[in-house]
């Protein structure tokens, strides 16, 4: 993947995340009005195709966006170059994806 394609992937994933962040924060504010409990959250999310799709796409976008951004920081700040930098960034991206997917599955299945 060229630097340009990484640049576009990072901008497009940001575009996807922007409305997700607003909805995520909005629902949080709405949901804690009557106190916060695990049962209430799971009651909303379990079996919900909407929340599965919402947070599933959110996790994918975050993984792409963060891995590309950290790849730049690893190069400019930590001095990592070439293949090593790509491998570290890919591991971070896949790790975020795995952790996020596990969390989404845990609250929606």
């Amino acid at each position: 993947m060229s630097e340009f394609h990484l640049y576009m992937a990072q901008r497009l994933s940001a575009l996807v995340m922007a409305p997700f962040v607003l909805v995520h924060i909005g629902v949080m504010i709405y949901a804690i009005q009557g106190g916060l409990s695990a049962a209430e959250i799971l009651g909303r999310t379990q079996g919900s195709v909407f929340w599965f799709a919402f947070y599933g796409m959110f996790v994918v976008a975050v993984s792409i966006h963060a891995a590309i951004g950290l790849r730049t920081i690893l190069g400019e700040w930590a001095g990592l170059r070439g293949g090593a930098r790509d491998v570290v960034a890919a591991v971070i991206g896949l790790g975020l994806m795995a952790l996020g997917a596990q969390a989404v599955w845990a609250v929606t299945s």
Binding site: S2, E3, F4, L6, Y7, T72
Partner: peptide, 9 residues
């Protein structure tokens, strides 16, 4: 300017 080290950096 799209290659490595180009404007997107």
């Amino acid at each position: 300017v799209s290659a490595k080290g180009g404007c997107h950096s």
